[in-house]
């Protein structure tokens, strides 16, 4: 079999295992906690729901009187048929449909902010390492380290306060203007970009320093390596050495780092959504916490985990394309 395919399948196997662990954690956590999970979970339902609905919900989470392994199987069966239960705060909408709309917005916002931040950060890091002792190298790292030390959501509060409430340059909440209808039309698309600009900028500012510093440090290591000296000795232009020999090679470990930091940065992105009342996963998360909507909370944990695992696999594919050594 082709080695690249074999590698990707091996990674896929790992992510499937990680997904199974997340699914099992989701099943275990309520049962490991003090108190009766069913009581806690449906406390808010009392009087509002028919016994038939409660029984259906119990089935979904395997909260039956069966032995544990049977409960687990029941839970898995429902899960794999796409049943994540019914949201308490959005009764009677199923969790899966609520998450589906939120997921698109989150992927759009966090995805574009992450990619912009990564590209900008790595470019700045590469340039800082290239011009050692220059302005970029001496001022930017501490400045960005300071900016990165602010909590994402706090930065979001400040930015929204100044540019939204104070100056009125940007919308205060939601993902697209009222009166436009989601679809492929320019008022909606432009409006969506306008609404995403401020939250995305916040995420970029808060995460830029991390990427820049990581890239700068890898670059410094690579600039000291023999193949850079050798490329320069051959009279290659500085530009070519920088792009083809230094930055390209330094990018590889940072792409792997990008995959690993994804879960962490996403946490910050979720909190940012909350501040901007952006209708993504983060906003659903706080809604779930406030309403003690356990089915929604757990559904969010699962879908976000799956999204991160999927993104990691994508990163693996990119690495494979860029680095011939993994194709061995």
């Amino acid at each position: 079999m082709n080695r690249s395919v074999e590698y990707l399948l091996r990674r896929l196997g790992f992510y499937s295992l990680a997904a199974m662990v997340a699914i099992t954690l989701n099943f275990m956590i309520p049962r490991m906690m003090p108190g009766d999970p069913a009581q806690i979970m449906f406390a808010r339902f009392k009087g509002e729901m028919s016994p038939a609905v409660i029984t259906a919900m119990r089935e979904t989470f395997g909260l039956t009187n069966d032995p544990m392994w049977q409960q687990y199987l029941t839970y898995l069966k429902h899960l794999f048929s796409g049943d994540l239960g019914i949201s308490i705060s959005n009764f009677p909408k199923p969790v899966i449909s609520i998450i589906a709309t939120g997921l698109t917005w989150s992927i759009f916002l966090a995805g574009s902010a992450l990619i912009i931040s990564f590209i900008l950060g790595t470019s700045l890091g590469a340039l800082a390492a290239w011009r050692r002792g220059g302005i970029l190298d001496s001022i930017m790292p501490p400045l960005l380290a300071l900016l990165g030390a602010f909590p994402y959501f706090w930065m979001a509060m400040l930015v929204l306060f100044v540019f939204g409430f104070g100056l009125g340059w940007f919308p205060l909440w939601h993902a697209y203007p009222d009166g436009t209808s989601p679809g492929f039309n320019s008022p909606f698309i432009l409006g969506a970009l306008y609404h995403a600009a401020l939250p995305a900028a916040t995420m970029v500012i808060a995460s830029l320093g991390g990427w820049m510093l990581a890239m700068r440090n890898t670059m410094i290591g690579i600039l000291g390596s023999d193949y850079i000296t050798y490329a320069r000795a051959r009279g290659l232009t500085s530009r070519r050495v920088l792009i083809r020999y230094a930055a390209r090679n330094a990018l590889l470990p940072n792409i792997t780092g990008f995959g690993m930091a994804l879960g962490f940065v996403l946490g910050g992105a979720l909190l940012t959504e909350i501040i901007f009342s952006y209708p993504g996963q983060g906003y659903l998360l706080i809604q779930a916490v406030r309403a003690q909507d356990y089915p929604l909370m757990q559904g969010l944990f699962l879908t976000i985990t799956l999204a991160v695992l999927g993104a990691n696999w994508f990163v693996d594919i990119v690495t494979l394309l860029l680095d011939p050594r993994t194709r061995r």
Partner: peptide, 27 residues
Amino acid sequence: AEELRRWHWQDVSIVMQSALNALNPVL
């Protein structure tokens, strides 16, 4: 810098100690 760049390899070239490290591993 530009004179140096042109001088390198047209007039003087080098074979370094470790050929593995001298070549860019991804090219």
